[in-house]
């Protein structure tokens, strides 16, 4: 079985995000970019399936600017077998929206015929949480979102989902689309031998036009603002005082 893993290049999760002065978005000039952390978990899961003998090839795909090639190299260094880069924008500030991404992925799925797509549940930059679901709709495949556990068993998969108030386990028919949550696994570091091998692994470069998909944004960003700064806490002397304060604030 072939596993397809879409990975997105996003602002590094350690970077303190700054909103641009004109409110048009966040400042991406000269900031560290990395693979979306949820996508790392997806890559890790795919590699584990391969190591367990349940998959035989892991293909990473990234759609965005040319620099996303670095993100794909990271996936290859983690252990993916090959990569496809779909250049869909020149400007690092252009975000390709989930529907366009899903449409391109649908075309790639037609070409590559994977038995499974594993994606992050959302990208940490725009928090859309939509690509996997849209891809499922476009392909007519089953889906299991927010996965914290994945068991593939022949023509179906058991997926444990992190839902409000607990865990839900569903059984889906393969091929399927899984979007992963934080607790599915702990992604590995790239090993030194794999880093050295990554360059030799195939990386195909395509464009959005190659797939006939129009990536023009449909959403308009009206304004971006900083979140409200957290108010300073207060140190209390005793449990009684704490309870009194909470009562005062109407919290208990």
């Amino acid at each position: 079985m072939k596993v397809l893993v879409p990975v997105k290049r996003v602002i590094d999760y350690n970077v303190k995000v700054r909103v641009k002065a004109d409110g048009s978005g966040v400042d991406l000039a000269n900031v560290k970019m990395s693979m979306n952390p949820f996508d790392e978990i997806a890559v890790e899961e795919a590699i584990r399936l391969k190591e367990a003998g349940k998959a035989d090839e892991v293909v990473a795909v990234s759609i965005g600017v040319k620099q996303a090639q670095e993100t794909l190299r990271t996936a290859l260094a983690m252990g993916a077998d090959r990569a496809i880069l779909v250049v869909a924008a020149d400007d690092v500030n252009t975000d390709i929206e989930p529907l366009a991404v899903a449409k391109i992925l649908a075309k790639i799925v037609e070409e590559e015929q994977p038995g499974l797509v594993i994606a992050g549940k959302q990208a940490i930059d725009n928090d859309m949480n939509a690509t996997g679901q849209m891809l499922s709709a476009l392909l007519g495949w089953s889906q299991g979102t927010f996965a914290s556990k994945l068991d593939i068993d022949g023509d179906h998969a058991l997926i444990t989902r992190e839902v409000d108030g607990g865990l839900q386990t569903i059984k889906v028919t393969m091929p399927t689309i899984v979007t992963v949550d934080l607790r599915l696994n702990e992604p590995r570091y790239a090993s030194l031998p794999n880093i050295m091998k990554a360059k030799k692994k195939p990386l195909d470069e395509k464009t959005a036009e190659d797939y006939g998909v129009d990536v023009t944004p449909r959403l308009e960003i009206v304004k971006t603002t900083e979140p409200e700064t957290r108010k300073a806490g207060e140190i209390v002397g005793s449990v009684d005082e704490l309870v009194a304060k909470l009562k005062e604030a109407g919290a208990v």
């Binding site: 350690n14 670095e70 190299r73 570091y189 790239a190 030194l192 880093i195 050295m196 360059k199």
Partner: peptide, 18 residues
């Protein structure tokens, strides 16, 4: 630096951070 060299540095850095 080459891509591999950047990745070597990034990997060690992350290892140290984590």
């Amino acid at each position: 630096l080459s891509e591999e060299q950047e990745m070597i540095a990034a990997t060690v850095r992350r290892f140290v951070e984590q």
